[in-house]
């Protein structure tokens, strides 16, 4: 009872990275609270899946194996998760902030009457005193996220409802094996007895999922452009620099919204989080929504027309000027001075 639960996202029988990242964070939270870590796997042909989860410190793996649970549809997964939460009364429940997690978690929260915070960038345990009633709360989940166009960082709590539910984007938390020899136990869920006919009013009639073409998370060098790049055409220069240096191109939300660069290259709170050894920010002002996704880069170079751009405060090098002037010089020097 009152343990930390992580919903495991599956594509077929393959576990999504974000779920392993959440298990890593969940283990830390559970240890701090002196609670157990439990995982929820809903799908089909899941024999042995628990072995992939135990090394992250999972104590209990709840498995519902039913061919109707894959591919994912909202209502059957919601029914089983809510039924499990009713029985197990989790203290905390974490979902990936993916199109699946952001479809399922709100529905679960509505059914269970729990509070939900989307797209958290940090999760911590802490106490709280209600400013009006002076009631004290111990060991709440602090759900921390940028809000409001990235102008503020908000800490959200759910003092009175359980579970405390949060979603976190892929790449925000680090994935680390806790103990390769760790072993927990499996609890089977009898899906047939829980699911109802009316849960299957939505049919998936076609499904095309591709391996991602862009590997931003794994790129050692990221050349990112913002609205200040000015046009899709100007982005070609960023691609050239990335190609020469062996990196990937990324964009801020403003650049994606303006159509300069594809959505899957978006870095920031509502995009991908990256930790490259070099992040070159071109024409990016540096709202928190963006910096939330790149602040842990080992080195940051900011190229900007505006000397007072917020991004300059977290940059190791700033270059003030026109990127159309600067980037060709960088490429030229690099080509001349490396093999």
């Amino acid at each position: 009872m009152n343990n930390v639960f992580v919903y495991i996202e599956l594509e077929g029988t393959e576990i999504a990275d974000v779920s392993l990242e959440l298990l890593t964070k969940g283990k830390k939270l559970a240890t701090q609270l002196n609670k157990k870590l439990e995982a929820i796997c809903l799908g089909s042909k899941l024999d042995g899946i628990e072995k992939e989860l135990y090394p992250y410190g999972v104590d209990v793996v709840h498995i519902a194996d039913d061919s109707r649970l894959t591919p994912y549809t909202t209502l059957p997964h919601n029914r089983i998760v809510c039924d499990l939460f009713e029985k197990e009364k989790p203290e905390i429940a974490l979902f990936g902030a993916t199109s699946l997690g952001r479809d399922l978690a709100p529905r679960v929260c509505s059914t269970t009457g729990s509070g939900l915070t989307a797209d958290c960038t940090s999760l911590e345990i802490g106490d709280h005193t209600d400013p009006k009633t002076k009631k004290e709360y111990k060991d709440l989940l602090y759900q921390i996220r940028p809000a409001f166009g990235g102008n503020i960082i908000a800490t959200i709590i759910n003092p009175d409802t359980r579970p405390q539910i949060a979603t976190v984007r892929e790449g925000v938390m680090k994935k680390e094996i806790a103990d390769a020899t760790y072993s927990g136990k499996v609890k089977k869920i009898d899906a047939k007895s829980i699911l109802k006919e009316e849960d299957f009013v939505i049919q998936v009639i076609e499904r095309q999922i591709e391996k991602s073409k862009v590997n931003l998370k794994g790129a050692p060098i990221v050349v990112a452009g913002g609205y200040g790049v000015g046009s899709k055409d100007n982005f070609k220069l960023l691609y050239e620099l990335a190609h020469v240096l062996g990196g990937e191109v990324a964009g801020s939300r403003a650049a994606v919204d303006a159509g300069y660069v594809e959505h899957e290259r978006q870095v920031g709170q509502t995009g991908v989080t990256v930790r490259p050894k070099l992040y070159i920010a071109c024409g990016i002002s540096g709202a928190v929504q963006h910096t939330a996704g790149m602040a842990e880069s080992a080195m940051v170079i900011a190229i900007n027309n505006d000397q007072d751009a917020p991004i300059n405060a977290i940059a190791d090098y700033t270059i003030t000027g026109d990127l159309n002037d600067i980037i060709p010089k960088m490429i030229k020097y690099y080509k001349l001075n490396t093999k």
Binding site: G113, S114, G115, L116, T117, H128, Y142, Q143, P146, A147, G150, N151, I152, I153, A154, T155, I156, I157, N158, P159, D160, T161, G286, V288, T291, P310, N312, A313, I314, A315, D316, Y317, T318, T320
Partner: peptide, 19 residues
């Protein structure tokens, strides 16, 4: 059920920057 515990304005930590 969700309450805002606190709000921080965003202040970047000063870093040694080469301009």
């Amino acid at each position: 059920p969700t309450k805002v515990k606190n709000i921080e304005n965003v202040v970047f930590k000063a870093k040694e920057t080469v301009d």
